[in-house]
Write a protein that binds this DNA or RNA. Structure first.
Lengths: 149, 149
DNA sequence: AGATTAAAGTGGGTTTAAGTGGGATAAAGT
DNA sequence: ACTTTATCCCACTTAAACCCACTTTAATCT
């Protein structure tokens, strides 16, 4: 299971080292693509299809599903880690993610998100404010979910 | 059962020794994550998975699920105690918990909370004042809950 | 009680691994 | 052919893991 957050930096030649803990789980053949809130998503090739399936299992939002897939698929690139676990982020993704020098990796169960550090700080600060309600939903809402999801 | 309150301090190299009593119960493979009121939560891996049940099956294209996971999974780190029962708290969690040198461990049945000592003092002081009315609300609403905790 | 012993907690040096930079070589684009 | 971009390899820096010794606190014994 991918968990935790790690700081890293974009090094010379635009290389980024994937933290060891993640490498062990994911291997060295990965896919990177555009994510939500301008994050970048990194996922193993194996989990890639699974990630996409979530986008067309809802027939009543077909057009949205199509567009979601364009977003995810169109932005995707397969990457391979070098012997030290580094990869190069394509420039259009760096631009999309507003990646500068300092970055954050987030382990999110089956995939990883990559954030510019400064942007993550801002985002997570607003996230902290919602902890209570989020955790509340989590603790109480597991068995009393809204039925119209 | 995890009970009691222990003082401890963050030592050189940011190491913290988990009190013996807790170690005996929890073992040495743990998860530490963000909790309420900026406390840090320490749980065994087994309890951790229980806590997550029902959260990771939701599609991440749903914003609520995304945020919850970023908080829960992205905020958590698995830690392993060294031969003397110490662990290292990642810097982002130290920051989140506003941990300085002196800290407090609280045993809370199934999990442990970790507080900065000064913050705990302030918080517990205000808790003392309000405990009557808080408990009252708890009693009134208790029939909605499973007999846990 | 006070002394003695054991256990828990703390510090710090050494070793190992992770992360980083950069040159040399190969591939791709113009 | 020449410039640019990526891949491979090696060297260096930094940080984490490991180990051992010391201090402090709690437990035991006459």
């Amino acid at each position: 299971m991918l968990i935790g957050q790690y700081e890293a930096r974009v090094g010379a030649k635009n290389r980024i080292a994937l933290p060891k803990k993640f490498r062990e789980i994911l291997g060295d053949k990965l896919i990177i693509t555009q994510g939500y809130e301008n994050s970048l998503i990194i996922v193993s090739q194996k989990n890639w299809k699974e990630l996409l399936e979530g986008t067309y299992d809802k027939p009543f939002i077909q057009s949205e599903a199509r567009e979601t897939r364009r977003f995810l698929l169109g932005g995707a690139t397969s990457i391979e880690l070098d012997d030290k676990g580094r990869f190069v982020v394509p420039s259009y993704l760096r631009e999309f993610g507003k990646i500068e020098e300092e970055i954050i990796f987030l382990g999110l169960y089956k995939h990883i998100e990559l954030w510019d550090k400064k942007r993550w700080r801002e985002y997570s600060k607003s996230l902290e404010k919602n902890i209570d309600s989020i955790s509340q939903r989590l603790v109480e809402g597991i068995d009393r979910r809204k039925s119209n999801e």
